[in-house]
Design a binder for these strands. Sequence first.
DNA 1: CCAAAGATGTTGATATCTCAACAAGTCGGG
DNA 2: CCCGACTTGTTGAGATATCAACATCTTTGG
Lengths: 149, 149
Amino acid sequence: MEERFELFTALITKISRSIRKIKNQEVEEYGLRSPHVSCLYYLYITDGLTATELCERCEEDKATVSRSLDYLETNGYILCESKSAKRYKSPLYLTEQGRMVAAKVAAKISRVLDDVSAAMTEEERVAFYRSLAMISDSLEACIKSDREQ
Amino acid sequence: MEERFELFTALITKISRSIRKIKNQEVEEYGLRSPHVSCLYYLYITDGLTATELCERCEEDKATVSRSLDYLETNGYILCESKSAKRYKSPLYLTEQGRMVAAKVAAKISRVLDDVSAAMTEEERVAFYRSLAMISDSLEACIKSDREQ
DNA sequence: CCAAAGATGTTGATATCTCAACAAGTCGGG
DNA sequence: CCCGACTTGTTGAGATATCAACATCTTTGG
């Protein structure tokens, strides 16, 4: 019974790693890596997000996002219209080059999603997402309740 | 449509992190951390596994497992009956101290699993595991097919 | 019995993530 | 207008994971 929990965590670890590899494969020719991909992707979907909004969507640490944005900005993938010194609350935009790479990434994601979806019915997919979200919340609750003790 | 892939990866990332935190919470008082927990746990379930077998079950890199075992051995959590210099193919066993901590970990895992399971039916659980495994395989296949191009 | 090939494990370099401390910007009340 | 509290973002240090190269052990075929 309990053994299934570890089985479950091992699978999650493995999937996590696979996702990172797929992202890397797609953008390594540009010198980009997995964490950059999420930023590009979400800006592709929604132009003008701020750093904090990106953090929320990627579920990444703000430190990770901050460094990703540094790299993307210095290498001409994104623009930041900030009046102030830093990126404070300022909306971020893809450059033409950024949009090009993001489109490539989006296409790849689409292909992978097709592969993954092929063996599932729409119903199964929905159920799976619901379970994932439920588990995520439930684990967070575990962490919090433990901390309070 | 594609947006769900990123949603999915964000959730996986988040769950991954939560799992690590839960493991850490449970063993930090012993100076242990997340990667050590998997090793202890699997030895608790099945005594006498070798390093490679542990790698397979944890889905961890052999380098990670190797270093975890180093730590667990020098700190008296496991025993290695190796005739040869290294751990080569030799079965690993928990010490009394190791078994004590592993039992604590197993109990914790059981509690977390109860929480997570509470909101799911047995049927949903089974479906979820099946989907996870399927997705894991499918992503691996994507990685391989890309590499061959 | 030996050499070569394959399996197993270790090590070092590097990249990455995470936490916590800090800096900078914004906002609201007096 | 200014002070203090809050939000937002950056930075540095340390922990961790990952990859590739290497070392070691076993097995197999001659």
